[in-house]
């Protein structure tokens, strides 16, 4: 009975994290983006500096009519948001935020592959949405999503493989147990490649051609309204949380920090995740969108060679220190 309670409690915590953190990131994006553009951002909802803006948005989305286009493939159209969102919910289970059994949803042996595999499956949601909407813009968005995923999955995997080589394990907890501070400069190229490729997989600016609103309206999500649209947005922000968490765990040493008591490892994890999330928002405000060909060029001529170089470097150092 105790086991059941433990599992239930863990799932509850994971669900809470999943529902709260993306909203926090979204709110931060509202405010940071506003201030970077000399604005104030939301100020009214909730009273204090618009802290409840996203809750108000959620209420608004829930009130809207759920429209399905007449020519759309009804079942797939309605299923797509769930397919986009659920993988992120599953992934968050495997990310450790502190040392020990208590600070991770469940320890997965092949953690890196689990996380990357399930994250990759989330893109199916966008593809299904793009095809099932019976809309040319949606179809274009879906096509771009697929092309982007195909080219950025490779550097992301290679960068992750480099860390796995360094640690000698593919378990996320194992990698963090083996972490030393000098991995930071050693794996910095890998970290860069992983983060950039992850941004591209999430379709965040400057890699947001699949939803480029000035070209193809909103890509695969053009026909969506109400809660289903909100689910897609939630998936995007959950993706940010997970990408930042993963980069933290794989490259920035997770719960390891220069100082801090044993019990405070999770603070380090959250802090690093928050800083990375800020960087994502910062990049969104700063850079214009890449063109589709520039996107492919960046992946194949920059990130893949960099990732391969990182793997070579990891291998050499690994052999030398043995």
């Amino acid at each position: 009975m105790n086991d059941v309670l433990d599992v239930a409690l863990r799932l509850l915590v994971v669900l809470a994290v999943f529902l709260v953190l993306p909203l926090v990131v979204g709110q931060t994006e509202h405010k940071v983006m506003a201030h970077m553009q000399g604005r104030l951002g939301p100020m009214y909802a909730g009273g204090f500096h618009g802290w409840a803006q996203l809750i108000a948005d959620g209420v608004k989305f829930a009130q809207k009519e759920d429209v399905v286009p007449a020519n759309a493939d009804r079942r797939i159209f309605q299923l797509a948001p769930a397919v986009a969102l659920i993988p992120y919910l599953i992934v968050i289970v495997a990310i450790p935020i502190g040392p020990g059994e208590g600070a991770v949803g469940t320890v997965v042996d092949a953690g890196i592959f689990f996380v990357l595999a399930v994250m990759g499956a989330g893109v199916l949601g966008s593809l299904m949405a793009g095809w099932a909407s019976a809309n040319k813009f949606s179809l274009l968005g879906g096509l771009r999503t697929a092309a982007q995923l195909l080219s950025y999955e490779l550097p992301m995997l290679l960068a992750a493989a480099s860390v796995a080589m360094a640690a000698g394990t593919v378990s996320l907890v194992g990698i963090l147990d083996a972490f030393e501070w000098w991995w930071l400069p050693w794996q910095i190229i890998g970290a860069f490649v992983f983060f950039v490729a992850g941004l591209a997989e999430l379709q965040r600016p400057p890699f947001d051609m699949p939803i480029a609103d000035s070209e193809i309206i909103f890509g695969a999500y053009t026909e969506y309204t109400g809660l289903r649209f909100a689910l897609f947005l939630l998936a995007e922000y959950a993706g940010i949380v997970i990408l930042c968490g993963l980069t933290t765990v794989l490259f920035l040493g997770g719960w390891h920090g220069p100082w801090g008591a044993d019990g405070l490892g999770w603070v380090w994890t959250l802090l690093k995740t928050a800083v990375l999330a800020f960087v994502i928002i910062w990049l969104r405000v700063t850079t214009p969108r890449l063109r589709e060909d520039q996107l492919q060029k960046l992946a194949w001529t920059t990130l893949v060679p960099l990732a391969l170089a990182q793997i070579a470097l990891t291998g050499i150092v690994k052999v030398v220190i043995q």
């Binding site: 592959f113 595999a117 990759g120 095809w131 096509l143 697929a146 195909l150």
Partner: peptide, 19 residues
């Protein structure tokens, strides 16, 4: 690996082709 390669890549490629 099955999920990563087949669901994550092969099927995406398939859908890409179909689109």
């Amino acid at each position: 690996m099955q999920v990563l390669i087949y669901v994550g890549s092969v099927v995406v490629l398939l859908l890409f082709g179909l689109m």
